[in-house]
């Protein structure tokens, strides 16, 4: 099956998280506030090289960059 999001370089995980995010945002006010907390994630990582800690990076932004990068390779 050919999905449009797959052609754009998105993974199934990304697809389903976008779909879930929009479902949460469509809820009535009281339920939405409780539900939207589930969509948040914040994780930082650093690469250690030669015994030194590298730059602290956010996993979410690193993932987005990786997706954009993968899509660039696919289309070219």
């Amino acid at each position: 099956m050919a999905f449009a999001w797959k052609a754009a370089g998105l993974t199934y995980n990304r697809y389903v998280s976008v779909a879930s995010r929009v479902v949460r945002r469509s809820l009535k006010e009281d339920k939405r506030i409780a539900a939207e907390r589930r969509g948040e994630s914040d994780l930082r990582f650093a690469k250690w090289e030669n015994g030194k800690q590298g730059e602290n990076k956010s996993l979410n932004t690193a993932n987005e960059a990786a997706v954009a990068d993968a899509a660039g390779h696919q289309s070219s």
């Binding site: 449009a4 999001w5 370089g9 976008v18 929009v22 997706v67 954009a68």
Partner: peptide, 15 residues
Amino acid sequence: SEQDIAEAKIELEVL
């Protein structure tokens, strides 16, 4: 970007 448009299209499908 291509990803932003793809994500907006997913949102549209759901909505």
